[in-house]
């Protein structure tokens, strides 16, 4: 084992992995995190804690991770290149590892234009691939990006994201190959609604043998309303929501839409599980954590394995 990560243990034991997601509050209130963490505990192997998602100011990911860890989760700290240069990134990596956080997801980050401080100066000193490589070199070579050595390395299980639905489609598998070459241990994908396209991408991934070198967790998320589906379809960059998905939600009475959204998500979980090379799911029920336990149970993914770190 490279780290003390629970997620690494689950994946290495070849158990179909489940990760969740937790969004920190736009305030200094720790209770929000405790409440969400209590719901997720026992249902996920590890849990992403977002880092200023959509460029909105929220509690720092590492701080919320610590609270989530106290509640018994194995947190995955998210780290974006949008707000930090290579100096700040490395300082955070050291601090995060010292605090006992075991996993880190390396992201470029949503552009500052989308958030609540659109006039901010974006950093983007590194891109996500360079960030993966830097963290990997810190862990495995005990080296800073500048080449200098360190005494105690940060033992982090390294993740990256990939979006099979973005363009240029033919470059998406080669881009994943770069993330693997840079040192990613696991990949979480953009939310899958278009299962056919995801399967096509997975085939390109298998053709390159990448599924054997990195563990791929398919992103899934329940949809609460027809409006939300439409919004994702038309307004969220890099999302692919087929017409059939919107139609399915439209086809049920209004008070049953959220139930149908959960069912639809469970169907997708069952479909992606059948695809060769998918090592788990990443369930993003942001601001709908209550839905997670019943979904994981209905998908037949209980009980979650327990490892003593």
């Amino acid at each position: 084992m490279k780290t003390k990560s629970n997620l690494e243990r689950v994946i290495e034991s070849k158990i179909f992995a489940v990760t969740g997601e937790l969004g920190p509050p736009q305030s200094a209130d720790p209770e929000v995190i405790r409440r969400k963490a209590k719901i997720l505990k026992g249902y996920v192997d590890a849990c992403n804690v977002t880092d200023g998602q959509t460029a909105v100011v929220r509690m720092a990911s590492w701080a919320a991770c610590l609270i989530a860890k106290e509640e018994g989760l194995d947190p995955i700290v998210q780290m974006t290149c949008r707000d930090r240069n290579r100096i700040a990134l490395q300082m955070d990596v050291l601090g995060i590892a010292a605090l006992g956080i075991n996993n880190m997801l390396c992201l470029t980050g949503d552009h500052q234009k989308f958030g609540n401080h659109p006039t901010a100066k974006g950093v983007y000193d590194l891109d996500s691939i360079q960030l993966v490589k830097m963290v990997k070199d810190m862990r495995d070579e005990k080296k800073f990006q500048c080449g200098e050595a360190m005494a105690v390395e940060p033992r982090l299980f390294i993740g990256a994201a990939e979006n099979p639905f973005a363009d240029p489609f033919e470059f998406r598998a080669p881009r994943l190959a770069k993330k693997v070459a840079a040192g990613a241990d696991f990949i979480q994908t953009q939310i899958v609604y278009n299962v056919d396209k995801f399967a096509e991408w997975m085939k390109m991934v298998r053709d390159k043998g990448l599924h054997e070198r990195v563990k791929i967790l398919a992103g899934v998320a329940p949809i609460k309303s027809v409006g939300a589906a439409r919004y994702m379809k038309t307004r969220v960059p890099g999302m692919d929501v087929p017409d059939g998905v919107v139609a399915r939600l439209q086809g049920v009475p209004k008070e049953q839409v959220s139930k149908e959204g959960i069912k639809l998500c469970i169907d997708i979980i069952n479909q992606v599980r059948e695809i060769e090379g998918v090592a788990g799911i990443h369930l993003m029920a942001i601001e709908w954590e209550e839905a997670v336990p019943e979904m994981i149970e209905a998908a037949g993914l209980l009980p979650r394995p327990k490892f003593v770190a």
Binding site: R82, Y124, I129, Q130, E162, A166, D167, P168, R175, K178
Partner: peptide, 14 residues
């Protein structure tokens, strides 16, 4: 928009 050096971000579409 992000000065990326290793290929497109996940938001490139159409």
């Amino acid at each position: 928009s992000k000065h990326l050096l290793n290929g497109p971000c996940g938001g490139s579409q159409g």
